[in-house]
């Protein structure tokens, strides 16, 4: 076994440990890609990502745009004739990719980061903060701002953020969950 093969094997083991999905069950019928509503925008369809995982090309799979574009609608998992949870594999690959700094879709990653930061500090989503921060982060300053006034007029926007009663509890959940993920991460 070459060193490269050993490394591939290690990543495939980690993917299995963290997703609890046996990718070898997949027989490449392509039903996942056929039903995927985002497949046409992906660089590799879900079936191809599954094939990469099977072949031990987890490193390559982590570098695809596909794992970020997946909307987690779970149509693939629903339809898989072998009961393989494809969406779970996509999600786990996304988590593993982020941990290693492979971010093929920057704006989606930024959106996730802002979202998590807000929830961590407030316990809940604060939509005006999400939109403004996203626009600053992506450089699209005026994206969706035309909806701001109608939202206010319809009293559909809560401008005052939620004040959590137990913000330490939420912060502790974030910290402990991160530690739990860390423990499952492979040696790098």
């Amino acid at each position: 076994m070459t060193l490269q093969e050993m490394q591939n094997q290690e990543l495939r083991d980690e993917l299995f440990l963290r997703s609890q999905v046996d990718v070898t069950k997949c027989y490449q019928c392509g039903k996942c890609t056929a039903g995927c509503p985002v497949a046409e925008h992906m660089d590799y369809g879900p079936r191809q990502v599954m094939r990469m995982a099977q072949m031990g090309l987890v490193e390559e799979a982590m570098k695809t745009k596909a794992i970020w574009l997946c909307a987690t609608c779970e149509t693939c998992s629903t339809r898989c004739p072998k009961g393989v949870e494809v969406a779970k594999v996509m999600e786990t690959l996304r988590i593993m990719a982020k941990e290693r700094g492979y971010i093929a879709e920057k704006n989606i990653d930024k959106f996730n980061n802002i979202y998590n930061t807000i929830v961590k500090s407030l316990g809940r989503m604060y939509e005006p903060g999400l939109i403004v921060s996203r626009n600053v982060a992506t450089g699209h300053l005026f994206q969706d701002t035309s909806y701001g006034i109608p939202y206010l007029a319809k009293q559909k926007l809560n401008l005052v953020p939620h004040k959590p009663k137990n913000s330490e509890e939420i912060k502790s959940i974030f910290a402990k969950a991160a530690a739990m993920d860390e423990a499952e991460r492979g040696n790098r």
């Binding site: 963290r18 909307a71 987690t72 999600e91 786990t92 996304r94 988590i95 982020k98 959106f111 996730n112 980061n113 979202y115 998590n116 929830v119 959940i173 974030f174 402990k176 969950a177 991160a178 739990m180 993920d181 499952e184």
Partner: peptide, 13 residues
């Protein structure tokens, strides 16, 4: 949908 995209345990917890 951001938490479970970033951390398995955060998404469940």
């Amino acid at each position: 949908s951001a938490a479970h995209s970033t951390s398995h345990w955060l998404g469940l917890s």
